[in-house]
């Protein structure tokens, strides 16, 4: 007898659900004449990840990454928030090894953990992880309790401290909710790379599917020595670093 593995099971159930949903929607809501197609739900066959090589990454690369992120999502021009109240989805970090005094520069953002503490602690399921490993805040459910910010080991999340207008169409942001790097999910779903990755012309930052053996990130990770930040916490991050 064929063993039913998890992936097959998900495939079958997804197909069945989709089928039922199609028929059911035909009954309840008749469809539009020329119906623009919706894309399929993402699956856990992929896991999006990023590899940042701090040996190749220059300081100006990091500045470009931060600027690209601000440009893409429209954060960083809050007028009333001061100091630590300002949004910071991606940060430039400079670290020095205490023994060797070696200095490395890196960009730090949401690490898109496989076991995200923010998702564990969120009382309302607003912090969530997509099937493909991208960790997001569902701002429709976020009540602004900020427990996720207490739990995040990477200081990756920001709380919107003031009213905002003129947001980007693809990136709703609002007062009283928590936000963070989305790994540019709106671009990834279109098959594009995240804005910060696209802003670096060298291969210092690689984006791709960690599971796909033909992807560049998978192959590079097999070759080079890489680390996760706070690997001791066993969160299995989607963002990896080499050279630190």
């Amino acid at each position: 007898m064929k063993e039913l593995n998890r992936r097959d099971f998900i495939k079958t159930t997804t197909a069945t659900t989709a089928g039922v949903a199609t028929i059911a929607s035909g009954i309840t809501l008749t469809t539009y004449a020329a119906l623009p197609k919706e894309s399929n739900p993402v699956t856990n066959e992929k896991r999006w990840g990023m590899l940042i090589d701090t040996n190749k990454l220059t300081e100006s690369n990091i500045d470009d990454m931060v600027n690209a992120c601000q440009e893409e999502h429209g954060w960083g021009n809050e007028t009333h928030s001061t100091g630590d109240q300002q949004a910071g989805w991606i940060k430039k970090i400079k670290v020095k090894d205490k023994a060797t005094e070696r200095i490395s520069n890196l960009a730090l953002m949401c690490q898109h953990c496989e076991e995200p503490p923010c998702v564990d602690v969120c009382p309302t399921n607003a912090s969530m992880k997509r099937e493909d490993g991208i960790v997001l805040v569902d701002k429709h459910l976020c009540i602004g309790c900020r427990y996720c910010m207490m739990a995040c080991p990477y200081d990756a999340r920001s709380f919107v401290h003031e009213s905002l207008t003129n947001q980007k169409t693809h990136m709703p942001r609002g007062k009283g909710t928590v936000e963070a790097c989305t790994m540019c999910v709106h671009k990834v779903d279109k098959g594009e790379a995240p804005a910060c990755v696209a802003s670096v012309s060298s291969d210092a930052v690689i984006f791709g599917d960690l599971y796909d053996p033909t992807s560049k990130i998978n192959q590079t990770l097999k070759k080079v020595q890489s680390t996760q930040i706070r690997a001791d916490l066993n969160l299995n991050t989607g963002v990896r670093y080499s050279g630190i």
């Binding site: 539009y32 119906l35 919706e38 894309s39 993402v42």
Partner: peptide, 23 residues
């Protein structure tokens, strides 16, 4: 709200129901 959950949680993009199109 049905579509918003599908888009945000499952990555279902496109289709007719989009708030940006209302706007």
């Amino acid at each position: 709200s049905h579509k918003r959950d599908k888009t945000l949680r499952q990555g279902v993009r496109g289709g007719v129901v989009q708030l940006s199109k209302c706007v």
